[in-house]
Amino acid sequence: MKAVILFHSTNHAIWAEDELKSNNIVCKMISVPRHLSSDCGYCVQIDTEDKEKATDILNTNKIEFEKIETL
């Protein structure tokens, strides 16, 4: 199962990807699925089991994100 983390800004999405990878979370930048947002940018895809750990990393680094959705 996969989940995606949505951000208000692509700048934050790329920052998040860097921090998550530094903390050994497997992640990938993908286009934002249309059913989740009308934004035309990208988001970060992770494994659902990493949701909690990823949230902690984002909060620790004060990286603002919109929401995490399971696909």
Binding site: S9, T10, N11, A13, I14, M29, I30, S31, V32, C40, G41, Y42
Partner: peptide, 13 residues
């Protein structure tokens, strides 16, 4: 950068 979700736009970002 930051204006689309394709591979090249991500790399620019």
């Amino acid at each position: 950068p930051g204006r689309s979700g394709h591979k090249m736009a991500i790399e620019a970002g």
